[in-house]
């Protein structure tokens, strides 16, 4: 049964990389079921994240956000800060797709704080870029300028010319 769980996870990932997102969802749902049977929270966390990603490419952004929220909860329970940051970043982008810019800002700020704590300058730069865009969408031009300047400063430091 444990091997079945791992195999469903691998199948789900392969379907995803091939662009078969419905099949990816079906496989990752099976993987999730088996992870729950075993009480394997790391595997459960991975399945939720993979499901969220697949739902993004299916255009089902609300469903994706629910899966990313479960990923975030589990990352916190597992005390994995890097995964917690990644889940916040995914949620920020998903709420941007849903045009809920207030929520997007909320999650991008959470991502920014963790990136700063972890000394992840690339993550911090991406958070500033995303925050600048969300504030622009809301017409908060002073805030947008603040984050654009931070993004420029970090991009120069990391040598990101684009």
């Amino acid at each position: 049964r444990a091997a079945q769980g791992r195999t469903y996870g691998n199948l789900g990932n392969t379907h995803y990389l091939l662009g078969n997102f419905r099949c990816a969802v079906a496989s990752h749902e099976q993987r999730l079921l088996i992870a729950k049977e075993f009480g394997d929270r790391s595997a459960e966390r991975r399945a939720y994240c993979n499901l969220g990603n697949a739902y993004i490419f299916l255009g089902e952004f609300e469903v994706a956000s629910e899966h990313y929220k479960r990923t975030l909860q589990l990352a916190r329970q597992l005390k994995d800060r890097a995964v917690e940051a990644q889940a916040c970043y995914s949620l920020g982008n998903t709420y941007t797709l849903l045009q809920d810019y207030e929520r997007a800002i909320d999650y991008h700020l959470k991502h920014l704080i963790i990136a700063q704590d972890l000394n992840d300058r690339i993550g911090e730069g991406r958070a500033c870029w995303s925050l600048g865009n969300a504030h622009t969408a809301l017409g908060n031009h002073d805030q947008a300028m603040h984050f654009a300047e931070k993004h420029l400063e970090i991009s120069k430091e990391t040598g990101d010319r684009s």
Binding site: R6, G9, N10, N13, Y16, L17, A43, R45, R46, A47, C49, N50, N53, I56, F57, Y89, S90, N93, T96, L97, L98, Q99, R126, W129, S130, N133, A137
Partner: peptide, 26 residues
């Protein structure tokens, strides 16, 4: 901003390009 425009936000586009190749490996 329309749904199509939301998809054109450059930081989101970049995230989706990266996401397309990202999987949580067993």
């Amino acid at each position: 901003m329309s749904r199509v425009k939301a998809l054109q936000v450059d930081s989101v586009q970049r995230w989706m390009e990266d996401l397309r190749h990202m999987t949580e490996v067993e």
